[in-house]
């Protein structure tokens, strides 16, 4: 059942979106959509149909942290699992992201194993 999950990958760099999409495919999640910043992602999420959000932090337009806050503030999306996948590595930022309600935090550059581990953990915890 979990393999039918629909992911939304938000990152301003198309190469990074491609990498994450490929890794998700390899992990058995073929259903992946992309957005290049929070402003594009939020209406997509609000339109419905997504089960998991993976977002970068540093993006022009609406940054990832703002997107997460908007997601958590939206009654329909509040419970959506969110993984932050970012180069932001300051301790205060990680704490801020945790407070904003992320379910996982992975710093770039990352490995396929780390992504798998965090996804399994988040999806396992949600069951």
């Amino acid at each position: 059942m979990s393999k039918d999950l629909k992911f939304l990958v938000v990152d301003d760099f198309s190469t990074m979106r491609r990498i994450i999409k490929n890794l998700l495919h390899d992990l058995g999640y073929p259903n992946v959509a992309e957005a290049d910043d929070g402003k594009t992602a939020l209406p997509m999420l609000q339109a419905g149909g997504y089960d998991f959000l993976i977002t970068d932090w540093n993006m022009p337009g609406m940054p990832g942290l703002e997107l997460i806050k908007a997601v958590r503030a939206d009654a329909k999306l509040a419970k959506m699992p969110v993984l932050m996948l970012t180069a932001e590595a300051k301790r205060e930022q990680i704490i801020e992201a945790a407070q904003a309600g992320v379910n996982g935090y992975v710093i770039k550059p990352f490995t396929a194993e780390t992504l798998k581990e965090k996804l399994d953990k988040i999806l396992g915890a949600g069951k």
Binding site: T15, I19, N22, P109
Partner: peptide
């Protein structure tokens, strides 16, 4: 090939 893909992540950073 999967590792080559992953190595392209530098472009984002």
């Amino acid at each position: 090939l999967a590792d080559v893909l992953l190595a392209q992540g530098y472009q984002d950073l």
